[in-house]
Design a protein around this nucleic acid. Sequence first.
DNA 1: ATTTGTGCAAATCGTTTGCATCTGA
DNA 2: TCAGATGCAAACGATTTGCACAAAT
Lengths: 139, 139
Amino acid sequence: MTHGSVEKNIPDILRGAGMRPTRQRVALAELLFAKGDRHLTAERLHEEAVGENVPVSLATVYNTLHQFTQAGLLREVAVEGAKTYFDTNTSNHYHFFCEQDGGILMDIQTDELFVQGLPEPPDGMAVSRVDVLVRLVEK
Amino acid sequence: MTHGSVEKNIPDILRGAGMRPTRQRVALAELLFAKGDRHLTAERLHEEAVGENVPVSLATVYNTLHQFTQAGLLREVAVEGAKTYFDTNTSNHYHFFCEQDGGILMDIQTDELFVQGLPEPPDGMAVSRVDVLVRLVEK
DNA sequence: ATTTGTGCAAATCGTTTGCATCTGA
DNA sequence: TCAGATGCAAACGATTTGCACAAAT
């Protein structure tokens, strides 16, 4: 992970996904992928970008997050009405969620938890993904 | 389930939950619980009510759905940004979801599927509920 | 030069709220 | 009577869109 010839720089990753490596996209990708796994809303990423002197509009943050998701660099996590979380960990895993502080998401790796006995999907349908959300409350 | 002295009529159920059995609440409860397990959005229930000559405002539908949920008569299901589904099946179970036709939810009973190896929640936290959503796509 | 991305502000969607009016116990 | 419920319309928050301008190849 920390060495190896497969490593690509951000502009190359973006080009590889068919996107032009514009200032904003590169800056957002750096914010997203530089610090390990993250769970962010569009709004929070926007604040973070502005805070780091990367002036970018909220609309562009939304566009970019969706483009990254389409390119397989991010994953969307549905938690509850309104706000959408984007997860930089695109591997197969599940989540803890607590309402605390406006909603915090944490990863659960699949080697800890797994789903057993997935029933046959209805005719003509195939499973695209299984989401597991473990909701937490303060004790 | 179909006989027995425990059976209550809707006004009694509402009174039992500390709600006045008003026209609108009784009518909505009838729409919700008369036809077996259902997965509805507020908007769809509102359309249905208006279609059945039960003139009720959308605001009242929202109020009522939330009150029913608080009373344990309904369960909320989070699927994706924006719209919330209300499930008349409040027992422990999971869901299939397909985007088709604006989003369809189907029950999966827990005797078919279960989650294994639930990890220890973080300190001071307790599990309140485990949601499993099996996302489907057309083959 | 051409194509694609960006920013702004306005538009949209689902949902909630304030408040005057009605209604059930 | 009168606390509680309803309806309307306006307010709301998150997200999307239309379009003039700017930047990348």
